[in-house]
């Protein structure tokens, strides 16, 4: 089973049309996302709201977006896995929203973006209460990781403070993959997601252990065909290892049957 651990869907997608990085595909609806999954051969997607960039659809706290994801998952329970997105700067409201997502909506994970939402991942007042909720629900937390303050180093302390929380560093730390790998080697609850990462996936996976690597596409902001090809083309990974990266690890982490 192929599971995309990093897909974005919902009405917020349309706001991105004027951005430098535009959606390559229309995933503003679940049908749009599933059409891409069908074309590429992806069985299930762990799906969350795109970052809110302003625009006609007004949803900076992701409350409407999360409800939209919840409805989509209800319609397509075999294809979509709900993942909450909240903005920690909303404080108590973010806590309430996350509780609703992991409770009422039955979402399996949480996505946080320190770079976009502009918070420090180690902020004990804003972020740790959210991580406590995720830990209680055994829900993995995905952190976008690229520019500051989302560089891999910042997740080291978080991982140490929450040793029984599964944390996914998206994009294998962006351009700081070596940093991400060095830290993940020292924090066993850190996992790396592959989308938009480029260099030497095989050697990184081998060194860290393939069970720590999750395939993701960053749909619709990256080309999903290329993201999948990046894994399947490799000669230094066995088909069993590829199966783990492409879906087995996500199924285990998110408790998917």
């Amino acid at each position: 089973m192929i599971i995309d651990a990093y897909a974005q869907m919902g009405p917020g997608i349309a706001n991105h049309a004027s951005q430098l990085i535009i959606p390559m595909h229309d995933t503003s609806t679940p049908e749009g996302l599933i059409a891409i999954m069908d074309r590429i051969g992806i069985d299930r997607s762990i799906v969350f709201a795109p970052k809110w960039v302003g625009g006609r659809f007004v949803d900076p706290d992701y409350v409407q977006s999360n409800r939209y994801v919840a409805d989509a998952v209800k319609q397509h329970p075999k294809r979509l896995v709900g993942c909450a997105r909240v903005n920690p700067n909303y404080g108590a409201d973010a806590v309430k929203e996350l509780e609703r997502c992991l409770g009422e909506y039955g979402f399996k994970g949480v996505m946080l973006d320190p770079e976009w939402e502009n918070f420090h991942p180690g902020d004990t007042a804003l972020v740790y209460p959210l991580l406590e909720i995720a830990r209680a629900k055994k829900a993995p937390v995905v952190f976008h990781s690229w520019y500051a303050p989302s560089e891999p180093a910042l997740f080291w302390k978080v991982a140490t403070d929450f040793p029984d929380l599964q944390i996914v560093i998206a994009h294998m730390g962006g351009r700081l993959t070596v940093d991400a790998a060095l830290i993940a080697e020292r924090a066993p609850n850190l996992n790396l997601e592959t989308s938009d990462h480029m260099y030497r996936l095989g050697p990184f996976a081998k060194r860290l252990g393939v069970r720590r690597i999750l395939f993701g596409t960053n749909t619709p902001f990256a080309a999903p065909e290329a993201e999948l090809y990046k894994v399947t083309v490799r000669k230094d990974l066995t088909s069993e290892e590829k199966d783990l990266i492409l879906g087995g690890n996500a199924a285990r982490l998110y408790g998917l049957g």
Binding site: I21, I22, M24, M198, Y199, N218, A222, A223, E227
Partner: peptide, 10 residues
């Protein structure tokens, strides 16, 4: 190398 597909498109 590291250029993402989104950056190349942009």
């Amino acid at each position: 190398g590291a250029s993402t597909s989104g950056e190349i498109l942009a």
